[in-house]
């Protein structure tokens, strides 16, 4: 399937989902006016990429400096789908980049790791 690339805007993160190399990257800040309108198509693309897939190691790289409350909820849905992909025989590594001075981002990453225990959670402090 085709890769998905959405350039960053003032209030939306860069989406760089390279399905051909199994590398999914989200980067920037996320506070769109309508988080569902932004994330539902992104999540749908991931769902079709994952459909029927097994024995794949997927690298997910998240470098979000800020996300608003409605984006938080959508991100949670995305990680749920990725967690389910592990249950169908894939390996999903979640590289979670965070600013060492900002515990909120790391805490949210740990929340995800707690709820979606099948993800291989790798927190990485940005230097």
């Amino acid at each position: 399937m085709e890769n998905l690339y959405i350039p960053a805007t003032a209030s939306e993160p860069e989406v760089d989902f390279r399905f051909d190399t199994h590398s999914l990257t989200l980067k920037g800040e996320s506070f769109p006016e309508n988080a569902a309108a932004f994330y539902v198509p992104v999540i749908a693309a991931v769902e079709s990429y994952l459909a029927g897939r097994s024995d794949t190691t997927i690298q997910v790289n998240v470098t979000l400096a800020y996300f608003n409350s409605s984006s938080t909820k959508m991100l949670f849905s995305l990680f749920e789908i990725l967690n389910n992909a592990v249950l169908s025989g894939n390996i999903v590594v979640l590289n979670w980049f965070y600013d060492e001075d900002d515990d909120t981002i790391l805490e949210f990453g740990q929340e995800i790791a707690d709820d979606f225990a099948a993800l291989e959670f790798r927190p990485q402090a940005l230097v």
Binding site: A35, S69, T72
Partner: peptide, 26 residues
């Protein structure tokens, strides 16, 4: 906040029902 994050959205909410909780948390 954690409970709300995992629950269904309320009718009439355009966000995640997390707005006031986020403000109170921060």
């Amino acid at each position: 906040y954690k409970t709300q994050l995992r629950s269904e959205n309320e009718a009439g909410s355009k966000g995640a029902g997390l707005g006031f909780l986020t403000v109170a948390r921060d």
